[in-house]
Computed example of a mutant assay.
Amino acid sequence: MSSGNAYHGEVGDHFARIADTSPYNAFTDRPAVLDLVGEVAGARVLDVGCGAGHYAEALVERGAVVTAVDGSATLLRHARERVGDRAELRPHDLETPLDFAADGAFDVAVCALVHHHLAAREQLLAELLRVLRPGGRLVLSTTHPTAEWLHHGGSYYDESWVEHRLPDPSLSIRYRRLPLETLVNEWLAAGFTLERLVEPRPLPELRDVDAARYEKLCAEPAFLAARLRRPPS
């Protein structure tokens, strides 16, 4: 993600620590995103805002050739520990163009739980359209607008930046509330075709790990995930 809103220092360490087993990451968002990605054996995949390398690891294990970028040196360190030299890992501020990548360089792009942290969302979408080959797909996930409304209150249509406190009250992350119409219209305006939209439910296995969180995530959406397609010509 952007260097300004990336998970630096203790926040990055916290995220890397919980993402292995979190009900939200391991049991809800990640399975949904990887399902939308589908078959990637031999595909050139760009992992945009790769975090601690969980998606990059899964994509490599599926046979993809992965380039993974993030604005946090902390998270890239964790990603290197996870994937080693099996993927190309590079620092990049996602508020700036993807100038390291040629037009049509990738078959697939994955942008998991990054979009809402960015100010230059339209620029990133335009860049992702550029670096994907014609017919290539972008799989994107973000916080669910309804979840943000339930948590923060006020107007559902509020698009303000918010600070979300982590369990350690000294740590927080910053992101923007975005209603559904803003999200979808930005994707379409960038030139993508919306192929599939998902409100991820948790894996059934979560019931045995955390029954209360499982019931909550089955009743209240936490994330929104989409598979977008660059038109073939």
Score class of each variant (00 low, 15 high):
M1R: 14
M1C: 13
S2C: 02
S2V: 00
S3M: 12
G4R: 15
N5R: 12
A6P: 06
Y7Q: 07
H8V: 10
G9S: 10
E10N: 13
V11E: 03
G12A: 07
H14R: 12
R17H: 13
D20Y: 13
D20S: 14
S22W: 01
S22I: 04
L34Y: 04
D35N: 09
V37C: 08
E39H: 14
G42W: 03
V45M: 04
L46S: 07
D47E: 04
D47N: 04
G53H: 01
G53E: 01
Y55W: 08
E57V: 09
L59S: 09
V60M: 08
V60G: 10
R62W: 02
G63R: 04
G63E: 07
A64I: 03
D70S: 11
D70K: 07
T74G: 03
T74I: 03
L75V: 02
R80Y: 10
G84H: 09
E88Y: 12
L94R: 07
L94A: 01
L94Y: 06
T96D: 09
P97Q: 15
P97K: 14
D99Q: 15
D99A: 15
F100D: 02
A101D: 05
D103Q: 05
D103E: 11
A105W: 03
F106K: 00
D107R: 04
V108N: 06
A109D: 10
C111R: 04
C111D: 05
V114C: 05
E122P: 09
Q123S: 11
L124F: 08
L125V: 09
A126T: 13
E127I: 00
L132N: 06
L132W: 00
P134S: 00
G135R: 03
G135H: 05
R137S: 15
V139A: 07
V139Q: 00
V139C: 03
V139R: 00
V139E: 01
L140N: 05
S141Y: 11
P145M: 06
T146R: 13
E148N: 10
G154D: 11
S155V: 04
Y157N: 11
Y157Q: 11
S160A: 10
W161T: 07
V162G: 02
V162P: 03
H164T: 12
D168E: 07
P179L: 02
L180M: 12
E181Y: 13
E181Q: 14
V184E: 11
V184D: 12
W187E: 13
A189R: 12
A190F: 10
A190I: 06
G191T: 02
F192Q: 02
R196P: 05
R196Y: 08
P200F: 14
P200W: 14
P200I: 14
R201H: 13
R201G: 14
P204K: 01
E205Q: 12
R207K: 13
V209T: 05
D210L: 05
A211D: 15
A212K: 15
K216T: 15
K216Y: 13
E220Y: 14
P221N: 07
P221L: 02
A222D: 08
A225K: 01
A226C: 03
R227V: 12
P231G: 00
S233C: 15
